Computed example of a mutant assay.
Amino acid sequence: MSAARDAAVNGALLRVTGLSKSYRGPQGPLPVLRGVDLALAAGTSLALMGESGSGKSTLLHLVAGLDHADSGAIRIDDVEVTKLDDDGRAALRRKTLGVVFQQFNLVPSLTVGDNLALQARLAGRYDCDWRDALADRLGLSALLDRYPEQLSGGQQQRVAVGRALAPRPRLLLADEPTGNLDEATGDAVLDLLLELSATAGAAVLMVTHSALLAAKLDRRATLAGGRLAL
């Protein structure tokens, strides 16, 4: 039995079935995903790999409800993401998902402390002690009153990781989260991301081009020709 089927049989947190997505091109529809199946159990991690343009980020954005699939289904717990309206998908991102992008996407007018708390406040699950624990583990405790422009790239990405984990999400989605960092800083940020995700009880689906970083996760899958190979 494949890892995906095994996860599905044992009650996967994330289940993707027959997912297809095309974009409009000058010569007509350009297929990106062709019937992708994927399952991810709670508390586990999966690295999504593939060449540039293979559809990795597209798949992640579909799971996050940031784009619409042409066909297929995405279920997170008992919620079918592909049937939600815009408000429903926004609520899912607030309450169930944590998202970390390659671009840090911090709010420049908020301090580090307020950026860390933002997602948890929106979800109605702000926990001061957990925020402080995240800040301490991420090496941000002395920086809580600073603004994003006063931080290095590595520090900003640590804030982004902490913000995503502050509401204790069920599923953390990370799109090349270390792509803008040097190798040593990227390794440290990813180690913290995985450690803190485990502490928060979150499953992790991460897009990466790095085999070395992917090896740190529980499983690896490769997108090629619009299909997923586990």
Rank of each mutant, 00 (worst) to 15 (best):
G28C: 14
G28V: 11
G28T: 09
G28R: 13
P29V: 08
P29K: 08
P29A: 08
P29G: 10
P29T: 05
P29Q: 07
L30R: 15
L30H: 09
L30C: 11
L30Y: 02
L30P: 03
P31V: 04
P31R: 07
V32W: 04
V32Q: 10
V32Y: 01
V32I: 12
V32M: 07
L33M: 12
L33R: 05
L33I: 13
R34N: 14
G35F: 11
G35A: 08
V36L: 15
V36F: 13
V36M: 10
V36R: 08
D37P: 00
D37E: 13
D37T: 02
L38I: 02
L38A: 01
L38G: 02
L38T: 01
L38R: 02
L38E: 01
L38W: 03
A39G: 12
A39N: 14
A39V: 07
A39H: 08
A39Q: 06
L40W: 11
L40K: 05
A41N: 09
A41E: 07
A41K: 13
A41T: 05
A42C: 08
A42R: 15
A42F: 07
G43L: 08
G43W: 14
T44Y: 11
T44R: 15
T44L: 12
T44W: 11
S45L: 01
S45F: 06
S45D: 04
S45K: 05
S45I: 00
L46I: 13
A47Q: 06
A47N: 03
A47R: 02
A47L: 06
A47H: 03
L48R: 04
L48V: 10
L48S: 07
L48Q: 04
M49Q: 13
M49L: 15
G50K: 01
G50W: 00
G50Y: 01
G50P: 10
G50H: 01
E51P: 00
E51S: 04
E51I: 00
E51N: 01
S52M: 00
S52H: 00
S52P: 00
G53D: 02
S54H: 05
S54T: 07
G55W: 00
G55F: 00
G55D: 00
K56C: 02
K56V: 04
K56Q: 03
S57D: 02
S57Y: 03
S57T: 12
T58P: 04
T58D: 05
T58E: 02
T58H: 00
L59Q: 06
L59A: 07
L59F: 08
L60W: 06
L60T: 09
L60G: 08
L60P: 09
H61F: 13
H61G: 10
H61S: 15
L62Y: 10
L62D: 08
L62V: 10
V63C: 15
V63T: 12
V63A: 14
V63E: 13
A64S: 12
A64C: 09
A64E: 01
A64I: 05
A64Y: 01
G65T: 10
L66R: 07
L66H: 03
D67M: 04
D67Y: 06
D67K: 04
D67C: 08
D67A: 15
D67V: 02
H68Y: 14
H68P: 04
A69H: 03
A69Y: 05
A69M: 06
A69W: 04
A69F: 07
G72Q: 10
G72W: 14
G72K: 03
G72S: 04
G72N: 05
G72T: 03
G72M: 09
A73F: 06
A73C: 08
A73Q: 15
A73V: 12
A73Y: 04
I74M: 10
